[in-house]
Structure formats: structure tokens, C-alpha cells
Amino acid sequence: MTEEKPLDFAREITGRLGGETITRCYQCGTCASACPVTKTTERYNPRQVIRLALLGQRNDVLKGDAIWLCASCYNCQERCPQKVEVADVIYALRNMAIRGGNIPAIYTEFAAALMNEGRLAPMSKFLEKKRAEYGLPPLKPANTEALKKILAATGFDKIMFRKEGAT
């Protein structure tokens, strides 16, 4: 394992979209006590995630389970006295984890749905029929051509999502 200074990891995070504010954290715990998930499970504590990140514990943060347990409710971000954009920091960490190959299965499914149909919830034959029965207009298809070009431009399509069945 290569030696890494704690701040290297923090700098990498602040350099990413969403991660800019992480170094403001002074560990007051407001986020943890405001978090509906922390109240429910010991698997997640936003304050601890930030602390590990600022101490340079790259593997604990990016390979661990905690960052995937944020419910994106933004209550922490709303109440943080240092205006750390906690929920956005978690997004930044997830982005980094995914680029590093730690991709929970559900996100592979989301990515596949997006890449194939431009929607996370594909239309079914049953629903098409039901819509017609209720007099709802047929759903206009997403412009998947444009979408593919955008995903190519951001590099989204290059992310190595795991094939179904693979672990």
C-alpha cells in the first residue's frame, strides 16, 4: 500500500464536485444527531465518515459500507453550523468509490436502466395498457441518442459497472 498523507485524500475530495466543503468540519456531531439513518443503525454516522476522510483513511471510507447508507435527506446539511454540504460530500465520496470499483449492485441496475432507456423506471406493456384505459397520453420516449452522447462526454459510460451476476 502506498503511503498517503491525510490531507492528500481530503484535497482530492475538496477538488471534486460536491466535496468542496469537507475541510470546514469541526466534528460537532450535529449531522449525526440530525440523521434519521444514524438513529436507526450503527452502520452509518456522517460525522465519522467525514472524520475518517479527513484523517486520510481512504480505504475505510471508499471501500466501506457507510457511504451507501446516506438517505440524501439533507437534514444534516441544513443544520450544519459550518455549512459543510454533508449530503453532497457523501455524493462526492460515492462518485470516488464507484470510479474505484466499489459499486453496490443496485447502482449497476440504475446505471443500466439509464443507459438503455434514459429512464430509471422502464415502461411496461401492462402500464402502457393501463395508461390508455385511464385516458392518459402515451409516454413520449426519452431521447436516448442525445443521452448516449452526454454519457460519453462525461465518461459515465466508461465506468466499469459490474455485469449482472458478477460479484
Binding site: C28, T30, C31, A32, A34, R79
Partner: peptide, 13 residues
């Protein structure tokens, strides 16, 4: 000494 309790943490609500 007098028994005041100290909790390190800022209340959220």
C-alpha cells in the same frame, strides 16, 4: 467535581 455532566456534541434539535 460537582457532578456537572459534559456531553461532547452539538445538539441538532
Amino acid at each position: 467535581e460537582m457532578g456537572v455532566k459534559f456531553v461532547k456534541g452539538r445538539p441538532s434539535e
